[in-house]
């Protein structure tokens, strides 16, 4: 595949990028800048006032309950990322190295479950976890005491992992699939155990996929709304619920805009730090490889 160098006056380039750029400019970038502008205004009696001051930002940074909810969102998201990665690693590995004939069928089953309507799946979990639901029916059948976890943070986490784990499975699968099998065989020949080979060869080489998946899951879980509401019972709201409430119930648009920006900033900062770490580790690996070759 050759990459063609073209000028902005090229008709092909304009028709390839033009519509998408205009669309994104009109309905993504402008709204984003408007949100920034809006966060410097204020409201009075449910009406927007063009005041151009920092009142809303002062409110955001001084309210204790806002930061409690932000902290909860952050910890829940971090836990969700860890769980998703840990769950996905053996599955991606098994899909590539163990499931020769079944690989495609398993992949289709996962894709279908991923693409089915999220609201309905979340509702399905409510039926499973309900006090008189399927799970407790099953537990009673095998003679165990019933557990009541619906409308708790545990249930929220189950829902979040359920809806987000396909992302890490896909990204880790894609990056593991590219690993040269000979490297793994060489490690076996050198006498490394299977666990050691996984730890020292497969895992470092699947880092790009782990990183990409972790970032995607983290960003998406910062904005979850369905799971805390439907499975968590709405008693421990997360950032998205707070933002929705400031827009709808309190009709305080500047506050909602400012909170939206806070969440986006948290996501962007995490992204930047992750990028830095990724760049540094790959640079360190490169110098290490150079010293080895000397």
């Amino acid at each position: 595949m050759r990459v063609k160098e073209v000028n902005w006056s090229n008709k092909g380039l304009l028709s390839a990028t033009g519509p998408l750029t205009i669309m994104l400019l009109l309905f993504f970038l402008i709204p984003f800048f408007m949100t920034v502008v809006l966060s410097f205004q204020s409201t009075q009696y449910y009406r927007l006032q063009w005041t151009w001051d920092l009142d809303i930002w002062k409110e955001v940074f001084s309210e204790y309950f806002i930061w409690r909810i932000m902290w909860r969102t952050l910890t829940m998201s971090a836990l969700c990322v860890v769980l998703c990665v840990v769950i996905s690693l053996p599955i991606a590995y098994a899909l590539i190295n163990r499931m020769k004939s079944m690989e495609n069928n398993v992949k289709i089953l996962i894709v279908f479950a991923f693409l089915a309507d999220a609201v309905l799946k979340t509702f399905g979990w409510v039926l499973v976890l309900d006090k008189s639901g399927v799970m407790n029916g099953f537990l009673a059948w095998i003679g165990l005491p019933e557990i009541d976890i619906l409308f708790s943070p545990t249930a929220t986490m189950i829902g979040m992992v359920y809806n987000l784990v396909p992302y890490t499975i896909f990204t880790i699968y894609l990056s593991m699939d590219r690993i040269d099998r000979d490297l793994v065989r060489a490690a076996y020949d050198a006498g490394a155990s299977r666990f050691r080979t996984f730890w020292e060869v497969t895992l470092p080489l699947s880092k790009p996929g782990i990183f990409a998946g972790a970032i995607l899951v983290f960003v998406l879980s910062l904005g979850v709304f369905l799971e805390p509401k439907v499975m968590g019972g709405g008693t421990r709201p997360m950032a998205a619920e707070l933002i929705r409430q400031s827009f709808e119930t309190r009709v305080n648009w500047p506050l909602g805009a400012a909170l939206t920006l806070v969440v986006i900033a948290i996501g962007a900062i995490t992204l930047a730090i992750a990028g830095k770490i990724a760049a540094r580790t790959s640079a360190a690996n490169a110098t290490l490889a150079q010293e080895d070759s000397k």
Partner: peptide
């Protein structure tokens, strides 16, 4: 847009 939380 992919890296934006959907609700936001």
């Amino acid at each position: 847009p992919l890296l934006f939380p959907q609700l936001l």
